[in-house]
Design a protein around this nucleic acid. Structure first.
Lengths: 219, 219
DNA sequence: ACCGCTTTGTGCACGAGTTCACAATCGGTC
DNA sequence: GACCGATTGTGAACTCGTGCACAAAGCGGT
């Protein structure tokens, strides 16, 4: 019964690529393509064919030698491994520009993620409805999390409030956090945090820009 | 004269962490702290002390044994290595919710990034002013890039338009792209692309949620 | 001028991730 | 029913990143 489970727990790097494969496959499926080779899929996903095959091999042997992968079946398998066959409730904290954008993001609705509520500290915003989701006051955060069994918290507050919000989320049982605030969050080991940081991305690009400029000047 | 240049080109993983150090250091500087040990800095940045020291060692020997690092000096050195002592012009394409949020993001103004213009395909939005930046029509993209010597393009359009916009950016000389659209962009090797993808982050969190749920069930 | 305390910088071993190359295996064809 | 071209799955070499442990080096007190 635990036939699928005792896999040597897929590597983090692989997990980070699976969603990309999933998206590309979904595109293929909509285009009416029934099977793909590792070559095609790798091309579309922007990785090497060998890496792709190794990634997929980590989750089982779903593929036919000489033919390729069945698109629908692979979509199902990746979804299952990623845990997308279940449903997750998400709460978004902070209704600034970013919170707005996140609430309207289509990616939430699809693929098993449901936004339970938007939450903000500013009472003036409470009662609004954004993208069909009601805005509630942050005092109610704990209530909302319990009520909707929220497991993922998204932090879109100013940096100064982020750690505080995070502590409260963790305090009432949230075990995964997606942080958009430019701070390093402090959490217990049992909680997963992923951060999205615009200014870091820009600075990395700046580094490469400079590198290119320098190597050009050296010629 | 090329004393600094012939470093063995800092590793990608290190470059990705330098902006974090920089931010933490800036916080320390504002708090009036003059020197930090690798221990303190590592703690605040959420990494191990050894890794931090190795990272910093890759850009030179700025630090005093028995004492630590001078905050201001280290800020300067990291800024220099990242290329933040120069100025970069950025163009943001797509004025949806996300484009709005990005335009208002404080991280742009500081640290040498200047938003040359917001650009959108929708004529109805042209002429608006968002966060002090004028919205112009996407037909003018090429003109704007030339005029302001834009080197970084930010794509905040729907997925369907992203590749097209990207091609045009690359076509008129942009060599770094920050992509928020959920697609894999196709670019020549000479162009750097970094992607920020909300739905991917969520799916990765979902995977870990599931993993935690399973290992809990096994107990 | 020396000594001891503190903290950096780094050599080394280890582990994770990537790439190559090829054997194993499938569907189709004669 | 056996061959053939195509494509997967994977062992093995290699590269890259991380963590440990310690020698080198500075500062302050005596």
């Amino acid at each position: 019964m635990d036939r699928h489970l005792r896999r040597p727990s897929i590597s983090e790097a692989t997990v980070a690529r699976l969603p990309v494969y999933l998206r590309v496959l979904t595109g293929f499926a909509e285009g009416g393509i029934a099977t793909v080779s590792s070559e095609q899929l790798a091309q579309a996903a922007g990785v090497g064919p060998a890496k792709l095959r190794k990634d997929l091999s980590h989750l089982g042997s779903y593929g036919t030698r000489g033919v390729g992968y069945d698109v629908e079946y692979l979509i199902y398998q990746i979804s299952r491994v990623l845990g997308l066959t279940q449903h997750y409730s998400v709460v978004i904290v902070g209704v600034g520009n970013l919170g707005h954008a996140l609430a309207g993001y289509a990616g939430f609705g699809t693929r098993g993620f449901r936004v339970a509520a938007l939450v903000d500290a500013d009472s003036a915003r409470v009662g609004e409805t954004i993208a069909g989701i009601e805005v509630r006051h942050s005092d109610e955060l704990e209530t909302i999390v319990k009520e909707h069994e929220v497991s993922i918290g998204v932090i879109a507050t100013p940096a100064s409030a982020a750690q505080d919000v995070c502590d409260r989320l963790v305090g009432c049982g949230v075990t995964s956090v997606l942080n958009f605030a430019p701070v390093v969050l402090n959490v217990p080991d049992s909680v997963d945090v992923r951060k999205v940081d615009l200014s870091i991305e820009l600075q990395i690009l700046a580094f490469h820009e400079q590198r290119k400029a320098l190597s050009e000047a050296a010629s």
